[in-house]
């Protein structure tokens, strides 16, 4: 029966689709209306921000911009992209994202792969120990003391190492290895006399590209978006990632004025509010650029985790 109906469905809507009863068509209309409302609610703030960022300072300050740029201007972007703090923050965040992702993915694979092997003695004990750290954390201050004792305070390492491995990511990777690499492969490889590291490098990793993509995306997004570790561990403004720079400019209002006369100061104050909108757009741009990849791969990662939590 299911064969019959699925064939029916495959034949396409125009040929065989039966007209739905009136009640269902009304219901579907309501559903679509609801989805449209949800779409608009999510979209409206984003459009509001973008529209403001492309408007003139006067229009923004007068509150005349709603959902379309008024007196189109790129001035805010020019100022944002020539600000040394923003550029330094961008540069730092790029370093943290690239280096952090490399370190994190390597370490995650290094623990998840052995734990995925059924003959790896101690795997259950180790896994339990890892999961326990999800349930009970050492806390902010004790972790700070460890970082302090290691001499990592106020260095780039403080953002790369203390949060390097996510247990969730280990679970995702371990599940992937356990489910998608057949055991026969290991036997064949060991009969050929390949060492464990060699098997990992030339057999397992080439088969695990989707996993590596998911892990890399997750860690990159985390590094790009987080500000907590930087807030706690860094004092030197030259090391600040973009998110801290944004926080200082957007939320604490601490843009350095540096203007001489009153007219200039006033102009700058006006500019500051447009600048905020432009900064939001500029800082979210890298994530937006990789968003199509994220939408495809992230979902898979979420699913793996959800299936085997």
């Amino acid at each position: 029966m299911s064969l019959f109906t699925s064939k029916l469905l495959r034949n396409g809507p125009s040929a065989t689709r039966v007209r739905e009863p009136l009640g269902d068509r009304i219901f579907l209309l309501v559903v679509k209306l609801m989805l449209t409302v949800m779409l608009l609610v999510v979209l409206a703030p984003l459009v509001f921000i973008v529209a403001n960022s492309f408007s003139s300072a006067e229009a923004v300050n007068a509150g005349r911009v709603k959902f379309w740029p008024v007196e189109f201007s790129l001035h805010a972007y020019e100022v944002a992209l020539s600000n040394s703090q923003v550029l330094q923050g961008y540069y730092n965040s790029l370093i943290y994202a690239v280096a952090g992702t490399l370190i994190s993915v390597t370490l995650t694979v290094a623990i998840a792969y052995p734990l995925s092997r059924k003959t790896f003695f101690g795997r259950n004990v180790i896994m339990t120990a890892l999961i326990f750290t999800m349930l009970f954390s050492g806390g902010l201050i004790p972790t700070y003391m460890v970082v302090q004792n290691l001499g990592m305070l106020n260095t780039r390492w403080a953002l790369l190492i203390p949060g390097a491995i996510g247990v969730w990511q280990v679970i995702i990777a371990r599940t992937f290895f356990a489910n998608s690499i057949p055991d026969e492969l290991f036997e064949a490889a060991s009969l050929d006399g390949a060492s464990e590291i060699r098997v990992l490098r030339s057999v397992v990793l080439p088969l695990s590209k989707p996993l590596l993509a998911v892990l890399a995306l997750m860690y990159t997004i985390y590094q790009w978006n987080t500000y907590f570790d930087a807030l706690v561990y860094l004092k030197d403004p030259d090391l600040f990632p973009l998110q801290i720079v944004l926080r200082n400019m957007l939320i604490l209002n601490s843009t350095r004025p540096g203007a001489e006369d009153l007219a200039q100061q006033l102009e700058q104050m006006q500019l500051v509010s447009v600048l905020r909108y432009a900064l939001i757009v500029v800082s979210s741009l890298p994530v937006l650029l990789i968003y199509p990849f994220i939408a495809r791969h992230f979902t898979k990662g979420v699913m793996v985790g959800a299936v085997k939590g």
Binding site: L107, T108, A110, I111, Y113, P114, L115, R117, T119, F120, F121, G122, I126, A129, L130, T133, F136, S137, G138, G139, I141, P142, T143, M145, V146, L150, I161, P162, A164, I165, S195, E196, I197, L200
Partner: peptide, 30 residues
């Protein structure tokens, strides 16, 4: 397991050290 997987134990030792240092030592510091 050690004879068969000693390379994997070496590989896992680095992340394990991470968990000891950054997760379990802080618990003790409580």
């Amino acid at each position: 397991s050690w004879r068969r997987h000693w390379q994997l134990y070496l590989l896992a030792s680095v992340p394990l050290a991470y968990f000891v240092i950054f997760k379990y030592v802080p618990m003790a510091f409580n």
